[in-house]
Design a protein around this nucleic acid. Structure first.
Lengths: 138, 138
DNA sequence: CTGGCTGCAAAAGATTTGCATAACG
DNA sequence: CGTTATGCAAATCTTTTGCAGCCAG
């Protein structure tokens, strides 16, 4: 698996400093940042980077399938760089922490035909909600 | 299962015209309206109803567990009145239609212990995405 | 009566858009 | 060099808040 900047260049993207920094911020597991958080962190390495630019880059990366939007309960969308290994999310209703879950003993995600209502299903997204270890034992 | 206005009165709610109308708008299966759509429909029956009032009522109903927020890809949250029979959602990536799916042959939603990362899971939410019959056969 | 609702308008938060300038390839 | 991306500010959209008056119980 090649790294992100490399893949982007292959897709004909101009490799700008802004894009490189955003790609760098969006790296790792259990990373689910809001656009604003991405902007803040990117600013530490590239102080002149504009908010709108961050939004542009995030939208482009989503359109390319390189990152995924994660809908939480907050107003702000969060972005998940781990778009290539399909996984689900565990959200703590106490502190808001989001963790990735990689289906090991895969919970059956296939919907039985009669329940499919004629849809052609392409993706299945599972969100587990509950309390994380820290919030469970206060 | 008693109807909504009745249950609300039992919980000490003042039964106002606004609340009755919002409750009425939020009735049925496959209903997933945005706050603005709820306001528009409610206005047809009660022209003076204010947008803020609709938001207040929706938030209260969510807090009481009478309706559920549905996170979609749009900016605006949607509200699902069907909070008592647990179910999942089928979203058409073509036209945005959302349909309820009641787990018949229940897809295993229990996460194996090692994958749980110490969380105490209370709810599982599945979102299937794909094309609805209409968008599949254009 | 009286505290809990409502409506309005203004504020706050998140994201998008328009346009002149900068810089990748 | 010619596009294409950036940065800034203003515009948009969604939701929340503050406050005076109204009404269900």
């Amino acid at each position: 698996m090649s790294n992100l900047p490399e893949r982007l260049r292959e897709r004909g993207w101009r490799l700008t400093a802004q894009r490189r920094v955003v790609a760098e911020v969006l790296t790792g597991d259990h990373v689910h940042l809001t656009a604003d958080e991405v902007h803040t962190r990117a600013s530490r390495q590239l102080p002149e980077i504009g908010r709108a630019t961050v939004y542009n880059i995030l939208n482009d990366l989503v359109a390319l399938g390189e990152i995924r939007e994660v809908s939480t309960d907050d107003r702000a969308k969060r972005y998940d760089p781990n778009a290539h290994r399909p996984h689900h999310h565990l959200i703590c209703t106490g502190c808001g922490t989001i963790r990735d879950v990689h289906p090991t003993a895969d919970p059956t995600t296939t919907l039985p035909a009669p329940a499919r209502l004629g849809f052609t299903i392409t993706t299945t997204e599972i969100t587990y909600r509950g309390l994380c270890p820290t919030c469970t034992h206060p």
